[in-house]
C-alpha cells in the first residue's frame, strides 16, 4: 500500500487521522497517486491540484525520500520506496501566512 501524509487541514477535510493508505493500479506517479487519493476522498478534489488544469496548487509541495518532487512532471514514476510503501509521499503546505 502506498502511504500518503496530508497536511492538517486536508486531513480535517478528508476526516482522516494519520497516514492515508492507498492502492494504486499501474505505475505509481503523482497523477495516479492523486487520482487514487481523490477517488477515495472526493472532498479533496480541487484542494491539491486545480480542478481543470490538474496542476499542483502553488502553495503546496510534494516530498518523498528526502527529495522535493514538486516540479517533476506528473507522469514521472515516483521512487520505488514510495511505490512499495517503504516511504510516505508527503503533501506539504508552504510555511507562510499568519
Amino acid at each position: 500500500m502506498i502511504r500518503v501524509v496530508l497536511p492538517f487541514h486536508l486531513r480535517t477535510i478528508a476526516r482522516v487521522d494519520g497516514e492515508v493508505h492507498l492502492r494504486v493500479d499501474g505505475p505509481t506517479t503523482q497523477r495516479t497517486l492523486i487520482d487514487a487519493l481523490e477517488a477515495r476522498y472526493p472532498t479533496l478534489r480541487g484542494t491539491i491540484r486545480d480542478h481543470v488544469t490538474q496542476r499542483r496548487r502553488p502553495f503546496l509541495r510534494f516530498f518523498a525520500c528526502e527529495q522535493d518532487l514538486s516540479l517533476d512532471p506528473p507522469d514521472t514514476p515516483l521512487p520505488d520506496a514510495v511505490a512499495n510503501g517503504e516511504e510516505p509521499f508527503l503533501v506539504v503546505g508552504a510555511v507562510a501566512g499568519g
Partner: peptide, 25 residues
C-alpha cells in the same frame, strides 16, 4: 490560499457541516 475553495453546507442549523461541490469553472 493553500487549499483553495470549499463550500460547506449544514442541514441542522450549523450543528454539523458537510463539504459540497467546490468546482467553479
Amino acid at each position: 490560499g493553500w487549499f483553495g475553495q470549499m463550500i460547506q453546507r449544514s442541514d441542522d442549523g450549523g450543528k454539523t457541516w458537510n463539504p459540497v461541490g467546490n468546482q467553479f469553472v
